[in-house]
Every structure is written in C-alpha cells, then in structure tokens.
Amino acid sequence: MKNRRMKIARMEKDLNQEALAKLVGVTRQTIGLIESGGYNPTLNLCISICKALGKTLDQLFWEEEQA
C-alpha cells in the first residue's frame, strides 16, 4: 500500500528522496520503495523517518482499519 502521508510530509519539509535518505542513512531507492509500498521498513527506520520529518509514528505509518 502506498504511503502518501510520508510523501506529503517529506514534500512539506521540502526534501527530495535523496535528501531524506541521507538524513536517515538509507539509499534513495529504499525511500522510494517505502513510499510506493514496495518495502515494509523496520521499526527503527520508521522512527528515524518520523524524527527526520518531525512527525509521529501514528501520523506516518498507522493504518486505520477500513470498515
């Protein structure tokens, strides 16, 4: 599932994938895959991304169950 919230948060911070990748210590492709839903990151990486984007885990990664 695509992570649009992360992509929006990144763009709000005016960061491209490369810049965010450097901030959290991964490759640009990994950020791209997380945003496109192709990779499920570990909790450690989720926390690093949240810190870099100034958001909480809930705001970026919590999926509300659909009725």
Binding site: G25, V26, T27, T30, P41, T42
Partner: peptide
C-alpha cells in the same frame, strides 16, 4: 565504519 548497506539492501 558506517554500515555499507541499508536494512533493505541487507
């Protein structure tokens, strides 16, 4: 040394 690969790459 800094890790050479990220978690997905590993």
């Amino acid at each position: 040394r800094a890790p050479e690969y990220d978690e997905r790459q590993l």
